[in-house]
Design a protein around this nucleic acid. Structure first.
Lengths: 216, 216
DNA sequence: GTTCAATGTTGAGCGTGTTCATTTTTGAGC
DNA sequence: GCTCAAAAATGAACACGCTCAACATTGAAC
């Protein structure tokens, strides 16, 4: 068997990942160059592209591991006997606190992760789908306990919750919200609205009046 | 006054915009080069960067106009006497149908628009804030008619609706949904859930059981 | 018509991410 | 220990977005 071969490959990959992580953290994603990463890892430029399809894939690889760890941790530390709202806030806040470690890099990650191509997209989808499944599980549990409407589709509710989380995250990372606390506050408010709903039980869904004023 | 000066400037800007639009449509955003755009517009490469901060800004400029037109059209064509759900679907579907004209370019636009820098970000925010205000106006109207909960914060509800729209849009443009119809269907389902809410009126928000199974 | 400061334009040049023909390394078969 | 195809690594070369010192154009003042 090819022990040396595999070991060298693993070593090089590890060195490249470490170098990339260090330089991304030090200089940010855009400022860090592949040449510098390669030099720090002790390999040639071209070698980097043997292990990652492109620079964006390098960043995605680095965060895929860490993000899946955050998912595990978030559900592992979910307090028992907590309300559905608090459970959702707990899970999504875990991500926000993770991204708070380096908001500059977080911006690049979230930006890159949303529109990936090819294998990287599939890798992310393999992380995302089970995650959304587990969030949906929270709604299923609430249904089982008679707390949530029976007609509700858990996966749709999970997607809505994720959408609200993503919006708060993006607003924060774009500087529209001042800090982590503000982002968490917006997240909670948005989720609260989703749980309580908009319409009154009456529900005679007719008549919506005209709009005033146009934009500049 | 400097009539010729202004006219030349306006002409050049128009030519650059036309050239950029044509080439982005023909080849896609990434494949189209600034050199080619400049050549088609009859100017030097450097001149392009006088009118747009960078290539991404060029794309953003092109779509800022068109998007604000879509906003106007969406609210102008809002049928009277329609349900809140149908009103929301109408507004957000307008955007989806607009993006459906060129989904490849739409991907680049949505991707670029989400994380803009500097003046481009402000320009987008000046488009987005009033838009969200008008969506919030739909909820205010529903409240005024006694259809929506009085405690609801209209802007939060609007942001939730936008988040659901964005999620459906991103899923579609990433190929997770097959076509425009599927995206519109997901949008409607998600909004329906937001309007009806999750929790039962009972609301004794306690007890949420354990999760099973970890991810690979 | 000439002057000249302000404004607008230019394209060679820089540093970047990425490719790929070439070179080096590896280990099973003998 | 040698052979040699397969695998891995290399770095020169390429095309790109973008900058900026140099150059061209404009029009108010005289």
């Amino acid at each position: 068997m090819s022990g040396l071969r595999a070991k060298n490959k693993a070593d090089k990959e590890a060195r490249i990942r470490e170098a990339a992580w260090a330089l991304f953290a030090e200089q940010g994603y855009e400022a860090a160059t592949v040449r510098e990463i390669a030099q720090r890892a002790g390999v040639a430029q071209g070698t980097v592209f043997v292990y990652a399809k492109d620079k964006a894939d390098l960043l995605a690889m680095l965060f895929a591991d860490r993000l899946s760890a955050v998912v595990e941790s978030a559900f592992a530390t979910l307090p028992a006997g907590v309300s559905l709202l608090d459970a959702l806030v707990h899970v999504f806040s875990s991500f926000m606190r993770f991204y708070a470690q380096d908001t500059r890099l977080a911006r690049s990650v979230v930006r890159g992760v949303l529109f990936l191509e090819g294998p990287a997209a599939e890798r992310m989808e393999r992380l995302n789908r089970p995650f959304l499944g587990r969030v949906a599980g929270l709604f299923v549990a609430a249904q089982a306990q008679g707390l949530a409407r029976a007609e509700l589709v858990p996966f749709v509710a999970a997607l809505n919750a994720f959408a609200a989380y993503f919006m708060a995250l993006a607003s924060w990372l774009n500087g529209l919200l001042p800090d982590l606390a503000a982002a968490e506050a917006q997240l909670r408010l948005a989720l609260e609205h989703q749980l309580l709903g908009v319409l009154l039980p009456s529900s005679s869904p007719i008549e919506l009046p005209t709009q005033q004023g146009a934009a500049p």
